[in-house]
């Protein structure tokens, strides 16, 4: 068969090769593209605002996709760690998709609204102040780069996104860091928080801390506290981005809460509008259910020790 004309005629050979490579291309790429299956859009999905789009541009410019994914796989532990698995319809306005292929840092598909803005700013400026062993580069220098509103407007136009002239005016004086934080806060928010995993609504937890006063638990809690809590609540619980843990005010009302309330707050975080012991939350704290029951109790033990209780 090696003597056939095919192996003597380069043009014929190229044509046959082209047809052969196009078969798989058509079936797995061109054909699906023509079907609505490949262009799904969630009902609540919004176009990016100019500031958010500018932030997404910064995300691309800095190559964030090299270390962070934006897709939660429908696997049990993944949903536990990050939240609701990613839906096809979430990404309709993403040119290109930014799912990534490596998790040197954590997945960001559900980062929107997980932390307050102040957390994001402080974390970008000094990730190691939150997580001593983090290998993320510092990005505080982005605040020295001011956005060019005309550029951002051109980008909005290129994508055909609707915007108001006021939105463009708002960009004056804003930095790349402001934009990046705005983008962080919108990622994955088209999937309702209420559906998001990473928390358990009906906790059946002991009313009193089973590790109360246990020195080992306090030591473990101290370690956990410095890794997960001190950046917002202060090294000694004195407060900072988050409220003080050693005064007598919890959820904006005077008076302490019970052990199991502490547990629930750590486990579920504070979602705006939720109520605990008649006190309404304003949001800001992410859930720490992924720590697991024992470690959360260790934290409660340590916080109690900070309070001198």
């Amino acid at each position: 068969m090696a003597n056939s004309a095919l192996y003597k005629n380069p043009i014929l050979f190229a044509v046959v090769t082209t047809v052969v490579v196009l078969i798989g291309t058509v079936v797995t790429m061109f054909y699906p593209m023509m079907t609505p299956e490949m262009h799904p859009k969630l009902e609540g999905l919004k176009q990016y605002t100019p500031l958010q789009l500018a932030g997404k541009d910064v995300y691309q410019q800095e190559g964030c996709v090299g270390c962070h994914t934006q897709t939660v796989r429908p696997l049990k532990t993944e949903v536990l760690r990050y939240g609701e698995y990613s839906k096809a319809g979430e990404f309709f306005y993403d040119h290109p998709f930014l799912w990534g292929s490596k998790r040197t840092g954590p997945d960001l598909a559900r980062i929107g609204g997980k932390y307050p803005d102040a957390w994001q700013y402080k974390h970008f400026e000094d990730p190691q102040s939150f997580f001593a062993e983090s290998n993320m580069p510092k990005y505080g220098w982005l605040k020295n780069n001011k956005l060019d509103p005309a550029d951002v407007e051109a980008h909005m136009k290129a994508l055909g996104f609707t915007y108001q002239p006021e939105d463009i005016a708002l960009l004056n004086g804003k930095s790349e860091l402001d934009a990046l934080v705005a983008y962080m806060q919108v990622i994955g928010t088209s999937v309702k928080k209420a559906d998001a995993g990473d928390k358990k609504k009906d906790l059946s937890v002991e009313p009193v801390n089973p590790f109360k006063g246990d020195p080992k638990a306090i030591a473990s809690g101290k370690e956990l506290y410095s890794q997960n809590c001190s950046a917002c609540h202060g090294v000694k619980g004195e407060g900072g981005i988050g409220p003080s843990l050693i005064d007598d005010e919890f959820l904006y009302v005077k008076g302490d809460l019970k052990d199991d309330d502490y547990f629930e707050l750590i486990n579920n975080g504070t979602q705006a509008g939720n109520v605990e012991e008649g006190r309404t939350m304003k949001g800001g704290m992410p859930p720490y259910a992924s720590l697991g029951r024992d470690k959360i109790w260790h934290l409660v033990s340590y916080i109690r020790s900070l309070q001198g209780k």
């Binding site: 262009h39 799904p40 096809a88 979430e90 990404f91 040119h95 290109p96 998709f97 980008h155 290129a158």
Partner: peptide
């Protein structure tokens, strides 16, 4: 989609963009 001399956006979006890429 060109959006400036040094900036463009993938013609494809979302799931489709992922499949083409």
């Amino acid at each position: 989609i060109p959006a400036g001399l040094f900036k463009s956006y993938h013609l494809f979006s979302g799931v489709n963009s992922a499949n083409v890429e």
